[in-house]
Design a protein around this nucleic acid. Structure first.
Lengths: 232, 232
DNA sequence: ATTGCGGTTTCTGTATACACAATCGCAATC
DNA sequence: GATTGCGATTGTGTATACAGAAACCGCAAT
C-alpha cells in the first residue's frame, strides 16, 4: 500500500481503487456528476464495477481533494459551487499564485520562459483558429503552470496550487468561453512571462494580481449570464 | 460513511478508523513516531488494536494531511523534516497568513479582538510564570488563530491554514523553547491584533510578515543549536 | 392532512479470507 | 567476498460476510 499507480507509460494495470478515483474525479470535473449530487457507496461501486473497498478508498481521496463531502447518515455528495465559493477560491488563489510568481521570478531559469514566450506571442493567431487553436492555447497555459511550479521549488506551495486548480477546473467549465477574454488573458500571461524573464518579482506579482482579478470578473459575468438565461 | 465522529461532547463511541487516525496523528505530532519512521500496515493495526480496514482509512487520511507518505513496495513512513522543508513551509505560511490577516483586518468584528488584546497585554507576566504560564500563552495563540479564521470567512483559506499548522506543530516540537523569543512574539502578536482592531490590512500584513520572519529565524537557530549539540 | 410508531429494507463500518506482489534469507556460483 | 537465483515468508489490494445504524415505508391515530 499506499502508492498510487505509476504514471502513464508503464504497463501496469490500474488498481481498482485508482480506476475508481480517476473515473469519479473525471466525472466530477467534467460535470457529469453535478455539484450537490448525492451518491451512495454501494451504487457507485456497482456502477463503476469495483467492490466497496477500493470505492471507499477512491472516495476518501476525493474527500481530501475537496471534490466530495461526506453526508450524515448515508453516502457522500459532490461539493457545491456557489458565487461565494468562487470568491473564496480566488482569494486563496491570489495568495498562492502571487507568492509562486514572486518565487518563480526570483529562482527561474530564463531559458524555459523564453521558449514559452515564443509560443504566447503567437496566441492571438492560435485563438483565431477555432476549437483546435483554443485547445492548444489551454495546453500552453498548462505548460506555463508547470514551468512556474518547477521554478518555485517548493512542494508545499505547489501542492496547494494544485489543489486550487482542481476546483478551478470545475469553475471554468461553468463559465462560457469568451473570445475577447481569452485574447486579453493571453496578453496578461505574456506580461507575467516577461516579468519572470526579467527577474522582477514585484512586476510579476502585480501582473498576476491583475490577471486574477480580470479572470474572476469574467467568470462571474459568465455565470451571471447563464443564470439570467435560466430565468423562467 | 464518510462522516468523522461528531465532536467531543457526544456520547458516541469513536469509530475504529477515527481512533487509529487520532492515535497515529498524535504520535507523529508528539514525536513518538519520528520523521522518517517506516511503518507497516499489519504491525500498526495490531499495535493499535484495530483491523486493517480502519487502519488503512486512518493512513489514507494521514497521507492527505502530508504527515505520512506511502513507500514503494510496503508500508508507509512519517514525512521527514528538513531545513529545506521548513523554509518551504514558511514560504507557504507567509502567503496564506498575510492574506488571512489582510482579510481579517477588513472583515473583523473588533470586539473579539479587543478582548484578545486584553489577554495579550498581560502576556509578559504570564510568560514569567513558568510552564503553566507558557501553556496558557499557547492557548491564547490558539484563540487568536481561531478568531482570525472566523473573521476571514473563507473555508478554502482556513483549510489551507490548518494544513500548514499541522506541520508547524511538528516543527515547533523540534525547536527549543526560547523565553526571549516568546516575549518578542507576544509583542508582535499584540501589534497584529492592534492592526486588525484598527482595520488596517496593510499594517496587519506587514506586521505578520515580520512576525513570521522572526519566527523562522528563531526556529532555524534552535535547530542549529540542537544539531551542534548532537555532534559526536 | 399531519404526525408518530413499528417493521422492513438499505447502507455503512469492520473483520477476515484469498490471491498476488514484494521482500528476505540461504545456497550455489564465480 | 560479491553476485545471482530460488523458495519461503510477509505484506498489500480486493472481495465478501456480518453486525449494527440509518433511512424508508406503511399504517393507525388524531
Amino acid at each position: 500500500m499506499y502508492t498510487e499507480t505509476a504514471m502513464l507509460g508503464l504497463d501496469v494495470p490500474l488498481r481498482a481503487s485508482e480506476r475508481a478515483y480517476r473515473q469519479l474525479r473525471g466525472e466530477i470535473l467534467n460535470g457529469l456528476l453535478a455539484p450537490g449530487a448525492a451518491l451512495l457507496e454501494v451504487e457507485q461501486a456497482e456502477r463503476i464495477g469495483v467492490s466497496r473497498t477500493p470505492l471507499r478508498e477512491a472516495v476518501a481521496r476525493l474527500i481530501a481533494d475537496g471534490l466530495v463531502v461526506g453526508r450524515r447518515g448515508r453516502g457522500f455528495e459532490v461539493t457545491d459551487i456557489s458565487v461565494d465559493s468562487i470568491f473564496e477560491l480566488y482569494e486563496l488563489r491570489q495568495a498562492l499564485e502571487v507568492q509562486a510568481i514572486r518565487l518563480a521570478a526570483t529562482r527561474r531559469e530564463p531559458t524555459v520562459f523564453i521558449e514559452l514566450r515564443k509560443a504566447f506571442v503567437s496566441a492571438p493567431e492560435l485563438l483565431d483558429q477555432g476549437d483546435a487553436g483554443v485547445h492548444r492555447y489551454y495546453l500552453m497555459i498548462d505548460e506555463l503552470e508547470d514551468a512556474v511550479d518547477a521554478a518555485v521549488e517548493n512542494p508545499f506551495l505547489v501542492g496547494a496550487l494544485r489543489a486550487v486548480r482542481t476546483h478551478l477546473a470545475r469553475i471554468r467549465r461553468l463559465a462560457r468561453r469568451n473570445p475577447l477574454r481569452l485574447r486579453a488573458a493571453a496578453a496578461e500571461h505574456l506580461l507575467i512571462i516577461d516579468a519572470i524573464i526579467a527577474g522582477d518579482p514585484s512586476l510579476a506579482a502585480h501582473a498576476t494580481h491583475i490577471h486574477l482579478h480580470q479572470s474572476l470578473v469574467s467568470v462571474l459575468a459568465a455565470i451571471d449570464e447563464d443564470s439570467a438565461a435560466v430565468v423562467e
